[in-house]
Amino acid sequence: MAMQNGKVALVTGASKGIGAEIARRLARDGFSVVVNYARGAEAAEQVVREIEAKRGEAIAVQADVGEPTAAARLFDTAEQALGGLDVLVNNAGIMKLAPLAEMDVADFDRQIAVNLGGVFHCMREGARRLRDGGRIISFSSSIVGLYQPTYSVYAASKAGVEAMTHVLAKELGPSGITVNVVAPGPVATELFLNGKSEALVETITKMIPLGRLGRPADIAGVVSFLAGPDGGWVNGQVLRANGGTV
């Protein structure tokens, strides 16, 4: 049974996978949670129902963070429904893989719009509107560092998130708002597994010193730490939660 801590967390892309697990974990930690989704309203509502079944508080809010005006609307709705925001988790992202020479321009534009632009728009709203002492937690990837073939645009978008995080952490220090990045390694989600053969997944798994793919709960635990009282002195950092891959 969740005991409310009086704080509110917004998780983008929270209808499935890592985002859904983060929403459930923060609700268990006592946060009221805004479950954001771009598509898949039923999946988002299911996450809300799961949280409410355990006496937590959550609402589902539609917004495609890749659209420039969506973030302000998302924050407006969250503030009106729950009174304010303390934690922003920029989890929403997409991945389109191809050798750089073969990358479709539309796929390039969309990845930059969502993975980098979406984080920018939400960071900007968070910088203006989070309550003092808040937390901004964004998502990169351990592919930044590995730089594997076919990941050029995805890695570039995530490297941009890391750069913005380092700068914003210094800008928001006086407000007591910390700004950090979680950079997962391979995690067994639809986003990661889609389009990969069983043999490729096995090859990737063998590269991980801990011998298994990550689980959404592994990543949600890192977010919980950064969002909670024990993470208050961690600022401007990239936490690579990857089983030792990099």
Rank of each mutant, 00 (worst) to 15 (best):
L26R: 11
G30Q: 12
G30S: 03
F31N: 10
F31M: 01
S32R: 11
Y37P: 00
E42Y: 08
V47F: 06
V48G: 11
E52H: 12
E52W: 01
A53V: 00
V61L: 14
V61G: 03
G66I: 01
P68V: 02
A72P: 08
R73E: 15
F75Y: 03
F75M: 01
D76R: 13
E79M: 15
Q80T: 10
A81Y: 07
L82R: 03
L82C: 07
L85D: 03
D86F: 07
D86P: 08
V87C: 13
N91M: 13
G93L: 07
I94E: 00
M95E: 15
A98M: 01
E102D: 11
D104S: 12
V105M: 09
D107F: 12
F108G: 10
F108C: 09
I112L: 15
A113D: 12
N115G: 08
L116C: 07
G117L: 08
G118D: 02
G118Q: 06
V119G: 03
F120D: 08
H121N: 06
C122I: 06
C122A: 14
A127C: 09
A127S: 09
A127H: 01
R128C: 05
L130M: 05
D132L: 14
R135D: 11
I136T: 06
F139N: 04
F139E: 02
S140V: 10
S141I: 11
G145I: 14
G145V: 06
P149A: 08
T150G: 12
T150L: 03
Y151M: 14
